[in-house]
Design a protein around this nucleic acid. Structure first.
Lengths: 199, 199
DNA sequence: ACAAATTTAGACCGATTGGTATAATTAAAC
DNA sequence: GTTTAATTATACCAATCGGTCTAAATTTGT
């Protein structure tokens, strides 16, 4: 049944795939590269993921989503509000870009654009990932007095702006777009919170 | 020297590559597919683009940028203002997504994420593309009374929000994110224009 | 300890990848 | 009209692609 080493092997595959897909994309990341970098033999991959690359990639996206969710929730807890949490969220990506020569952007944006149209399993995982970030911000904004409908719009703007900024940053190889978004969306959030607690 | 058919062949390659890269991405689009779909033989490709796939792709991005620039400027001229032009810009993408089962998003976002890190020629072309859209909006906003610095921020927000929304739309397979962005950014622009002509 | 199930190891596969080389063809220059 | 350069057309290449298969190794259940 369960088998200690098996879980480790599986995890190693998922982590490696996630890392490579984040920087290179789905199509450019070969099975062989994943195996070589993880040290796992081919047989194990197709045992754990019978459907092959696409199944592993979908799992990699889900893994990445869990990771992001944990980090984001911790950020909110530590920062104590949606505004500083959003800023910290941006700061994380800014650091992530600047320390990797603008290679590590959004963990799932690339694969979304590459494979969401053709592989349903991947599309669903990507959709969930974005929805999760939105949901976390919505809940926090509502808890700070913003009306649910307004919180929804605000959270969606936050996600779209960050995702777009991550593209621009990689295109320009500098982090200014993310810094602009950081400032502007934070101000929008402040306004929304103020409105929610006055009107 | 110049050679009528040669230019045609070259153009056919660029157009086909542009179309395929837009929906499938760079890595997933094979040389063979481009040749098959365009009806151009392999020898011609490597004559016109000695550096091969990457050179053709960079040219495809530039071609797409020109196309976008033309459309955007026409939109501004017809709509007669940055706000309705921005809305029309969003509407174009909404229609583009909805009529292609959410496959046709931003023409250059995917290749930016895939290849901007590794192929300098492609990176430069992508950077120029985004900068062009920003520039067009900045100029129009300034002409409507917005201070240059504010116009810059506004234009960058517009581009990031649209780009991010295009990702979310493809992930969700619906166009709501783009509709939300359309409404919110338009309002921001109205405010900025009003501020610019009062304060 | 033994048997059964799970997991690994890696050889092997056809198909496709991007790219090269060269010969035939075509147009331009004189 | 002949020479010269530009362009096209394919045959060909090694390397890699994702995936299959089977035997060995390993762990679990009894």
């Amino acid at each position: 049944m369960g088998y200690a080493k098996s879980i480790e092997t599986r995890q190693k595959l998922v982590k490696t795939a996630s890392k490579l897909i984040r920087t290179q994309g789905y199509a450019a990341t070969g099975i062989q590269q994943i195996l070589q970098e993880s040290g796992v033999p081919k047989g194990s991959l197709y045992y754990h993921f019978p459907a092959g690359k696409s199944e592993l990639a979908a799992e990699a996206v889900r893994y990445s989503n869990q990771f992001t969710e944990g980090r984001l929730k911790k950020l909110i807890e530590m920062a104590g509000g949606s505004v500083p949490a959003f800023q910290a969220f941006c700061d994380y990506y800014i650091a992530s870009l600047e320390t990797t020569d603008f290679q590590k952007g959004c963990p799932i944006a690339t694969i979304t654009l590459e494979a969401a149209a053709t592989v349903d399993l991947i599309q669903a995982a990507c959709e969930d990932g974005f929805a999760m970030i939105e949901r976390v911000f919505i809940e926090q904004l509502v808890s700070e007095g913003v009306l649910p409908k307004e919180a929804q719009g605000q959270a969606m703007m936050a996600v779209t702006a960050v995702e777009g900024a991550l593209i621009l940053c990689r295109a320009r190889r500098n982090s200014e777009p993310l810094k602009v978004v950081r400032g502007r969306i934070a101000q929008d959030m402040r306004d929304a919170i103020a409105r929610g607690n006055n009107g």
